[in-house]
């Protein structure tokens, strides 16, 4: 690990000012950052510890939604009574990720900002445009079975590893942030992540020193919420593919649908194509297949991850069937 200056932030404004300096980073749970610092993939010169800031509350909003503080741990969010009763999708998704030990440390804001688990990002002997801009992408011709099939570029095919964010994308969640100049803004989770393009090292739209304060959940949409994760072992593994769905039906016809995927893109992948294909159709295996085809129409495999395209279709079909009660 490279040496760094450590400081405990005394308040939000001070934290943002400190983190706006070159080579400074926020740290909260540290479960991803400390790991990457040990490998010298992350080499911050200043580490701004925000873990004591008052951002650990979950509160209901005036419009009937929920505000989850950025420092609420993944465990606390998943165990929260309101999350469990009104947003079970979010609870399920969080519980599908990592282990309890990690969820006890990992925070809401940090989970959103975790970096990719692409094996070539972690292997410092290999080129990686995300780790060393301009060095190339070893995953393109490498063992890329964990990599993305949608929305990525010839410079980077890394997938985002969060389960939590997939549920948040389906729930139309927004992040509330504050900038070093004190200005605040609200960004949909779906718009938080930048497409890799030819700058895959820039992963989000956040400015230097911009701090996530909370995640806002609007009131839950109608319908049954189901999160399903497909992975190499039964627990404690990253998703090959995951699906977050919310389906409401009226007299056997789908009246409202939300669909988001994990494991297949640089971000939690909200599929408006699948949602459009579902509205008004009869809830059957065939119509759910058609939604999967629509969702994956623009997908491209890179060899070892070709299987993710049919797997994502089948995962969506199976998850929709559970949500619609026809499984």
């Amino acid at each position: 690990m490279k040496p760094f200056r450590y400081e405990r932030a005394s308040g939000v404004a001070a934290a943002c000012a400190s983190a706006a300096r070159p080579a400074a980073k926020f740290v909260a749970g540290g479960t991803n950052l400390v790991d990457l610092m040990k490998l010298q993939i992350e080499t911050p010169a200043h580490l701004v510890d925000i873990s004591a800031l008052p951002l650990s509350d979950i509160e209901e909003t005036a419009e009937g939604g929920l505000r989850i503080g950025a420092l609420v741990t993944n465990s606390a969010a998943a165990a929260d009574a309101t999350v469990r009763s009104r947003y079970p999708l979010l609870s399920q998704a969080i519980l599908a990720g990592a282990s309890t030990q990690l969820r006890n440390k990992a925070t809401t804001g940090g989970n959103l900002l975790q970096r990719t688990r692409c094996p070539y990002f972690y292997d410092t002997t290999k080129p990686c445009n995300k780790r060393v801009p301009g060095s190339g992408c070893a995953a393109l011709g490498g063992i890329n079975r964990m990599n993305a099939v949608l929305g990525v570029s010839d410079d980077c095919i890394a997938a985002h590893g969060s389960d939590m964010a997939v549920a948040m994308a389906a729930l139309d969640a927004r992040v509330e942030t504050v900038l070093p100049d004190g200005a605040t803004r609200t960004i949909p989770v779906d718009a938080l992540y930048r497409p890799p393009g030819n700058t895959p090292h820039i992963e989000t739209v956040l400015a230097p020193g911009e701090l996530i304060l909370s995640v806002l959940l609007p009131p839950p949409p109608p319908g049954r919420q189901v999160y399903r994760k497909v992975r190499d072992r039964a627990s404690y593994a990253f998703a090959l593919v995951s699906a977050a769905v919310i389906v409401a039906s009226d007299n056997g016809l789908v009246s409202a649908a939300r669909v988001a995927f994990g494991g297949i893109s640089y971000k939690p992948w909200r599929s408006v194509e699948a949602e459009a294909a579902l509205i008004g159709v009869t809830a059957t295996r065939e119509s759910f297949d058609a939604a999967g085809v629509a969702a994956l129409r623009d997908a491209r495999g890179y060899g070892y991850n070709d299987f993710k395209i049919p797997l994502a279709r089948r995962t969506l079909r199976a998850t929709l069937a559970v949500a619609a009660g026809i499984a």
């Binding site: 450590y6 740290v27 540290g30 479960t31 400390v34 790991d35 580490l47 510890d49 873990s51 465990s75 309890t100 030990q101 990690l102 006890n104 440390k105």
Partner: peptide, 13 residues
């Protein structure tokens, strides 16, 4: 009261 991985925890925190 909560279990964590001490390998990923900076002691100063």
């Amino acid at each position: 009261g909560q279990r964590i991985n001490s390998c990923l925890a900076l002691a100063v925190m």
